[in-house]
């Protein structure tokens, strides 16, 4: 390839990347391999609507009042070291519960059990909170218990 051709090719590649990279912001994970939108840490979650689990017993120990699993992170299995992974499992469990799918529900329960190093009983709650306030003092705007799971 001559120098002139290389120059044109390079310019073409940069333009193609800029366009396809930008368009990949609309795809899952903002990525269309090998293009990525570089849409990183750009959105501030003002309010979160999340399903969380509140642990009522851990191993042989009764936890009263129940605590969010986020406050017992030392018992989260190393294979689920990020809460986002546990969140995915909780969301799947709630989906199965709402769809009345017994098989998926049992599978979801097992997946959550495997996320902890000790057997747990828990309530699944629907919450709405402001992340900053939640992190500082666990303050919640709204919380509703959906169902309970016992060991």
């Amino acid at each position: 390839m001559t120098y002139q051709m290389t120059r044109t090719f390079l310019l073409f590649l940069l333009i193609v990347y800029a366009i396809l990279g930008f368009l990949s912001r609309f795809s899952r994970g903002h990525e269309l391999y090998p293009f990525f939108s570089w849409k990183l840490f750009d959105t501030v979650p003002n309010v979160r609507n999340e399903f969380l689990i509140k642990i009522t017993s851990l191993g042989e120990k009764i936890i009263s009042p129940p605590v969010y699993y986020l406050d017992r992170k030392e018992f989260i299995s190393p294979f689920s070291s990020s809460a986002s992974l546990v969140q995915r499992k909780i969301n799947a469990l709630v989906r199965a519960y709402r769809n009345k799918n017994a098989q998926d529900f049992e599978q979801g329960k097992r997946a959550i059990e495997n996320s902890f190093t000790l057997p747990i009983s828990y309530d699944v709650v629907e919450t709405r909170f402001i992340p900053l306030e939640f992190l500082k003092n666990r303050s919640i705007i709204r919380e509703t218990t959906l169902f309970s799971v016992t060991q």
Binding site: F41, P45, K73, F134
Partner: peptide, 13 residues
């Protein structure tokens, strides 16, 4: 930034 970081901290533990 503090809002973004608090959310990040909650869900990454």
């Amino acid at each position: 930034m503090s809002m973004l970081l608090s959310d990040w901290s909650i869900f990454t533990l």
